[in-house]
Amino acid sequence: MMHFSIPILHSAVTIMTPLLLASMGGLFTELSGMLNIALEGLLLTGAFFSVVFTYFTGSMIAGTLLGIGCTMLLSAILASVTLNLKSNVFITGLAVNLFASGLTVVLSFALFANKGVVVFDNIRPLPLLGTPRLASIPILGDIFIGHSAFVYLSWLLLVICYFVLYRTPFGFRIRATGLHQEALSSLGMRPNAYRFASFLISGFTCGLGGAMLTLNLGAFVPNITAGKGWIALVVIFLGNKKPFGLFIAAFIFGLADAFSNYAQGALNIPSDFILAIPYVFTLLAMIGSSIYAKNKGAIES
C-alpha cells in the first residue's frame, strides 16, 4: 500500500493548491452573497500574465505580483459591472470566463505569434522547499515536505483567510452582507463596498493560484486551467463554506486527480470515473444538506 500511496498523496497536495487558492477567494464572494463563477477566468488570467511578466521581467516574484495585479484589475471590472451597472453576477461571471479564454490566446498570438503551447526557456522550475530534518519525518514528511513555495503560501493564506473572516470586523461585515445585508445598510454601511472587496480578494487568490499553474510548467498552455476554477466553486460547497472545510474538499479533488493517473495505469480503472467521483460526492452532500435544512424548516412552519 505505502509504496504507491505516498507519491499519490504528495502530488495530491500539489494539485490541490490552485484549487485551494481559488476557492479561498471564492469563499469571500460567496459569503458576501455573490455566486462567483468567474473563478475559472480569473485563474486563467493569473496563469497567463504571471508567466508572461516573469518572462519579461526575469523575476518570478515580480512576474507573479504583476500577474496578480492584472487578475485583480479584471475582478475589479467584474465587480463594477456587476454592482454599479447592476448586472446579473452569474452572467458577468460567464463573461469573465469567456473574456479570459479569448484574451489569453489573442495576446499569446500577438506577443509570441503562437496560439499553442508557449514554452519560456528562461524560466527555471520552481524551487522545492524543505529541510532534510523535516523530510525525514515518516509519512508526513514524505507527503507535505518538498513542495514549492506556493503550497506553503496557500496554507499561510488559509490561516489568514480564517483570521480575516472570523476575527476581524471586516470579516464580520462581509459575512453579514451575505447573511442579511439590511443589518449593514440599516446602520449606514454599504454592503456593495464589501462585495467589491470580496471580488478583489478573489482576484488576488486566483492570480496567485494561476501563477502556480504556469510557473510550475515554465510554459503557458491555452486553457491551462481546464475547469479548475469550476472545481474551486464546487470545493466551496463541498467544504461547507468554511476555510478549513475548503482544505479538506480541495484535498479530496486533488487526491481524485492524483489517484486517477495512478489507477488508470496500475489498476486499469478509467481515470474519468475517478475524476467524476468528487462531483457525485458534492452532489450527494448538497442533497443531504438541503434535506436537513428542509426538515429543520418544517418544524418551524
Binding site: 483570521f163 476575527r167 476581524t168 470586523p169 470579516g171 464580520f172 461585515r173 459575512r175 453579514a176 447573511l179 442579511h180 439590511e182 443589518a183 449593514l184 440599516s186 446602520l187 449606514g188 454601511m189
Partner: peptide
C-alpha cells in the same frame, strides 16, 4: 423596524457593534 435587521448567526454583541467594532492591535476584532 418592525422586521428585525439582525444577523441570526451572530451574537448579540456582534450585532450591536456592527460597524463600530472594538479592535485589538488595530486589525483584529
Amino acid at each position: 423596524h418592525q422586521h428585525f435587521m439582525l444577523v441570526e448567526d451572530f451574537t448579540v454583541a456582534q450585532n450591536v457593534l456592527m460597524g463600530i467594532e472594538p479592535r485589538k492591535h488595530r486589525i483584529s476584532y
